[in-house]
């Protein structure tokens, strides 16, 4: 294992929560300001990828276990589908914005525009889980070395 400098470890420990909160803000205000589920989800993933790079995969796996990242991925996709089906039932067409018709919030406020924030959250969750999983798996493989050793720590969660 490569030794990592103390400065990098310390600073990344301080930085990661801020990146995470920024990601949440980008997702939650996606319908009011630039942002949304896609960039927000990637920012959330990058907070954990920072931990993965600076403090090793054991630490990142402890913060966000593989199984939970996979579950985030699935939950996001399922919530998005569920909102679409609810739109089919309540709004007349698949993915219809039924909440906006039922409770039209005040424009430019956080609780407005019906299903869009819900979908943003779902997509953010999905991208977070998916991208983190992909980067984790790609970084685990020891190219040219013994593949078992690298993967064992991850799959024994």
């Amino acid at each position: 294992m490569m030794t990592r400098s103390l400065i990098v470890q310390r600073i990344s420990r301080w930085l990661a929560p801020f990146i995470f909160i920024y990601g949440l803000q980008v997702i939650l205000y996606g319908h009011l300001s630039p942002g949304g589920g896609f960039p927000g989800g990637v920012i959330l993933a990058s907070a954990f990828i920072l931990i993965l790079i600076s403090r090793g995969k054991e630490e990142a796996g402890r913060r966000l276990p593989l199984s939970r990242a996979g579950r985030f991925d699935n939950t996001g996709a399922l919530v998005f589908l569920a909102v679409g089906l609810l739109g089919f039932v309540l709004g007349g067409s698949f993915l219809a914005n039924f909440l906006q018709r039922l409770f039209p919030g005040r424009p430019f406020s956080l609780l407005s525009s019906g299903t869009i924030p819900v979908n943003n959250l779902a997509i953010g969750l999905k991208i977070w889980g998916g991208i983190f999983l992909a980067v984790l798996f790609l970084s685990v493989l020891r190219v040219g070395g013994d593949p078992d050793r690298g993967l064992k720590t991850m799959e024994e969660e």
């Binding site: 990637v42 992909a134 493989l141 593949p147």
Partner: peptide, 19 residues
């Protein structure tokens, strides 16, 4: 975003080929 997932897949394939 599709480009990112495509890149992840391509990197996966080339790492596997290198392996």
């Amino acid at each position: 975003v599709i480009g990112l997932s495509l890149l992840a897949l391509l990197v996966g394939i080339s790492l596997r080929l290198y392996h």
